[in-house]
Structure formats: C-alpha cells, structure tokens
Amino acid sequence: MTKKRTFEAALKELEEIVKQMESGDLCLEDAVKKYESGMKQSKYCLDLLDKTEKKISLLTKDNDGNVKEVPFKD
C-alpha cells in the first residue's frame, strides 16, 4: 500500500532543498538535481492547495443578511 504524502511533508522537503541550495555548497550538477526536485515539490504543494481550495465552502449572506453555506463551484 502506498502512503499518501502530506502537504506538510512536501513543504518541509521543499524548505530543506532551499536551505541546501542557498548554502552554496552544492556543485552545479547537484544544484540542478535539487532544483528539479524542488520544482516537483512546489508543483505538488500548489496542486494540493488548489484541490483543497475547491473543496472549501463559501460563506455568503442571503437577502435577509443571514449567513448561509454554499458549496464552491468550479
């Protein structure tokens, strides 16, 4: 069974990649590999945020000023 990766785990990995790249200790080849990996982590996080945003319900007021919940429409 494949364990689903969490947003927090992907973000932590991305932060570690950024630290490594900012250190200046990587050779060009390793820096490019880290960059590619970081871009994958970034895309995963952005995609997950986008999917989550679409699941969120919008709170709106009706004509009488009452707050009601309306599902988010694509």
Rank of each mutant, 00 (worst) to 15 (best):
K68T: 03
E29G: 06
E29C: 10
F72M: 09
T2F: 15
L58D: 08
M21T: 01
K54Q: 06
L11H: 07
S23D: 02
G38L: 01
K33A: 13
G65T: 00
L14M: 07
E8I: 12
L26S: 02
F72R: 13
C45G: 01
R5W: 11
M21W: 03
L59T: 08
K34Y: 04
T60Q: 05
G38H: 00
A10F: 02
E22F: 02
I56A: 13
Y44M: 00
V67F: 08
Y35I: 06
C27H: 15
D50P: 09
R5M: 14
K61C: 01
E29S: 13
T60E: 09
E36W: 12
K12Y: 14
E15C: 04
L49M: 11
Y35G: 07
K61G: 02
K68G: 03
V32N: 13
D62I: 00
K33Y: 07
M39T: 08
D50R: 08
K43F: 09
A10W: 03
Y44E: 00
T60L: 11
K19N: 04
N66D: 01
A9N: 03
E36C: 13
T60G: 06
K68L: 03
D64R: 03
D47C: 02
A10Q: 07
K34P: 03
T60S: 06
E69H: 03
I17W: 00
G24H: 01
K34F: 12
K51M: 07
K12M: 12
K12P: 05
K4N: 10
E36P: 05
G65W: 00
E16W: 06
L59A: 07
V32R: 15
E53T: 13
L28D: 15
V67Y: 09
D47G: 05
T60A: 12
E8N: 04
C45A: 05
L58T: 08
L26I: 03
A9M: 06
E29R: 08
D64V: 02
K34Q: 10
G24Y: 00
V18E: 07
E16I: 08
D74R: 14
R5E: 12
E15V: 01
V32Q: 13
K54P: 00
K61E: 01
A31E: 15
L28K: 10
I17K: 01
D64I: 04
L58V: 13
L49N: 05
E69M: 15
K12S: 14
T6P: 00
M39K: 11
K33M: 15
L11S: 04
K40E: 03
E8M: 07
K51V: 10
S57C: 14
F72E: 14
D50F: 11
K40M: 10
C45D: 02
P71D: 08
K19Q: 06
L14I: 04
S42D: 05
E15R: 11
L48Y: 09
E13C: 02
K4A: 11
K68E: 03
I17E: 00
E36Y: 12
L14H: 06
C27T: 15
K73R: 12
K19W: 12
D64P: 00
S42C: 09
L28F: 14
K19G: 07
E16Y: 09
T2Y: 15
S57W: 12
C45N: 02
Y35F: 11
M21S: 07
K19A: 10
L59Y: 05
E15Y: 11
E36S: 10
D62Y: 00
L46C: 04
F72T: 13
